[in-house]
Every structure is written in C-alpha cells, then in structure tokens.
Amino acid sequence: MGSHRSVAPASGFNRGAGAALCALSAAAAALGAVPAHAAPSGETRAEVDRLYTEAEQATEAFNQAGEKAGKLRREVSGAQDAIARQQERINAMRERLGALAGAQYRAGGLDPSIALLFSDDPDEYLDKAATLDRLTVHQAGQLRELQSAMRELSQDRAEAAGKLGELEKSRRAVATHKRTVERKLARARELLNSLSPSERADYDRVSRSGRDDMPFPGGQASSPRAAAAVAAARSALGRPYVWGASGPTGFDCSGLMQWSYGQAGVSLPRTSQAQAHAGRRVPLSQAQPGDIVTYRSDASHVGMYVGNGQVIHAPYPGAPVRYDPVGMMPVSSVTRP
C-alpha cells in the first residue's frame, strides 16, 4: 500500500507485533484529537497516507498471525491424532500384559518342585517351565515398553497443551490486529470523505506517480513459472483490495503475490516481509517480469514487476488491483522466486 488512500470493508484474518501495535495505538490516539473537517487538504492527504501505511503494516502483522495460527492448528491436530494412537497402543499393551499375568498366575499356582512330582510327564513339565521363564522375561520387556509409551504420552499431552495455549495467544493477536486495521481504515475513510472532488482526484493522481528518471527494463520473464505468475496477476486486474484476503475475488498486496505464484505452482509465504526473502535478490535495474518488488524499509507493501517500469499490485482499500510505476514509493528489495 504506499501512499495509501481509500477504504473498503474489512475481511480476513491477521495478527500483529506488540511494538507495532503500541505505535499504531499511539498514532490513533493522536489522530482522534483532530477533527477531519478542520485539517487543511494537504495535511489531510498526509494523514491519510500515514493511516494507510500503518493499516498496511497492521494488515501484514495480521497475515503473519493468521499464518501462525493456521500452522499451530495443524500441529495441534497432528498432536491430538498422535496422542489418540499412542493411547490405543497403551490400551492394547495393557490387555496383553493382563492376559499374560493371568496365565502366569494360573501356571505358577503350584510350587515347581511339587508340580514336578505330580506331573504325568516330567519331560513335558520341564519344557513348559522353560517356556514360562521366557514368558516372564518377555513380560518384563513389555512392562518396560508400556512405561516408556506412557512417558511419551505424557510428554505429547504436555506439548499439545503448550501448542493450544500458543494458538489461543495467536488468535487473540489476530483479533487485536483486525481491530487496529479496521480503526485505521475507518479514520482514513473519514478523512478522504472530507476532501473535495478535485482534491480527491489530485490525491489519487499523486498516489499513482513515481520516479521517471530511472531506466527500467522490459524484457521477458525470468522463467516459465514467472511468466505464469505475471499472467495470473494480470487476470486479477480490477479486482478489489480486501485486506487480509488472498483471492480469488479480492486481495491485499501480499495475498495477490501469493495467489499469482500459486497459480504457477509456486508456494510463496503469506506476508510481504517473508516474500522479500523467498528467492534470489536482484538489483532493480535488472528486474524482470515476475520479480517481486517490496516497498518501504519494513517491506510492508509488495507488487509484481511486469516490465517497462510497471508493477501490478493491490494498492489500498477502495483501489482495485492495477498497474502503477515501480518507483511509486521507496523500493526495499527486488526478489526473483
């Protein structure tokens, strides 16, 4: 999102970081002191830009929290399945040991020397006694195995409980960042509505401007996968920005990148910060179609380079997926997946 501007209904899932949340809360408190109609248009535009930037930072934190919550849910589900299997194994071991103990008790009800005296076939008795000794050794081994299985089960349950606690914290973070984004976007909408039609048109024009003093390459995509991702991104042109969404009907900035490369069979991480590291870094002057361009020092916005100095990106609420100059805001990195 960059110089980011208008607003749409919130949707999706996300999380955030404590420090960022504190900064966002402080900013929101400061904003609340200035009525929208009292701010000059230039200050209003700057304030909207700041709000969109902060909302996008919170959106990426929300995405990160949602991704973590999903991973934890899968881990908890796997742990619960493993616990159930281990419990079944322990139950079966207990049944076998119980049957063996009963047989041993019945076989050992007489003193061995007396049993030998009353045996009709001493040789047969000696064979059975040897088997009984082996069963006793086997029983001891099964007992040790049962004890080990029970210790593992206890550890698995403790780990699952820890993951459940972590999942609950992540869910709370998601909810917190969702509220932060919604608050920022609502304030930005209020400020935008205070602009006159000509000021709003000027705001949108400025938001799409970029540096034109750099030569940018056109060229071919770096690989068939990159070409397929570019085609997917182009197919999404005109679809709405929806924060926390990764397609196919709406996107936030990193959701568009993940979805586009997903159509090419490439799995990208969910957040713009992680996408900045999802491949090989290249200089902006050597960018090729399909390369991922991240923006700002915190890599909180991302677009896809499509050649001739243009990116396709999901800009901000109220603005659909579109082309913009690659230099529309400070470039943080260019990554070739």
Rank of each mutant, 00 (worst) to 15 (best):
M1V: 15
S3C: 03
S3D: 13
S3W: 04
H4R: 10
H4S: 14
R5V: 11
S6A: 09
V7H: 00
A8F: 10
A8V: 15
P9G: 13
S11A: 10
G12V: 07
A17G: 12
G18I: 09
G18D: 12
A23V: 10
S25R: 12
A28S: 13
A29Q: 07
A30W: 01
G32P: 04
S41R: 03
G42D: 14
E43W: 02
E47I: 11
D49C: 12
R50H: 04
A55C: 07
A55L: 02
A55N: 04
A58P: 06
T59P: 07
F62H: 13
N63C: 00
E67F: 01
A69M: 07
A69Q: 12
L72F: 04
R74P: 00
G78L: 06
A84G: 01
A84T: 06
E88Y: 04
R94S: 15
E95H: 06
G98S: 15
L100D: 13
G102E: 15
L110Y: 01
I114C: 08
S119P: 12
P122C: 03
E124P: 00
Y125L: 15
K128F: 11
K128H: 03
A129G: 01
A130V: 11
R134A: 14
T136H: 05
V137M: 10
Q142E: 15
L146P: 05
Q147K: 01
A149F: 00
M150F: 00
M150H: 01
E152Y: 03
E152L: 01
D156S: 06
D156I: 01
R157P: 02
A158L: 11
E159L: 08
A161D: 09
K163Y: 10
L164P: 04
E166D: 11
K169D: 14
R172V: 15
R172Y: 03
A173E: 14
K184L: 15
A188K: 05
L191Y: 08
S194D: 02
P197D: 14
Y203D: 14
D204L: 15
R205N: 07
V206M: 09
S207Y: 03
D213S: 02
P215S: 05
S223V: 07
P224I: 07
A228D: 08
A228C: 06
A229R: 03
A232N: 08
A233K: 13
A236Y: 03
L237N: 10
G238C: 10
Y241E: 12
A245S: 13
A245C: 11
S246N: 13
T249G: 08
G250H: 11
L256N: 09
S272L: 08
A278S: 09
V282I: 10
P283E: 02
D291C: 01
V293K: 00
T294M: 06
S297C: 05
D298R: 08
A299C: 05
A299D: 09
H301K: 04
G303C: 10
I312L: 08
P317N: 05
Y323E: 15
D324P: 08
V326S: 04
G327D: 13
M328Y: 06
M329A: 14
V331I: 15
S332A: 04
T335C: 02
P337C: 09
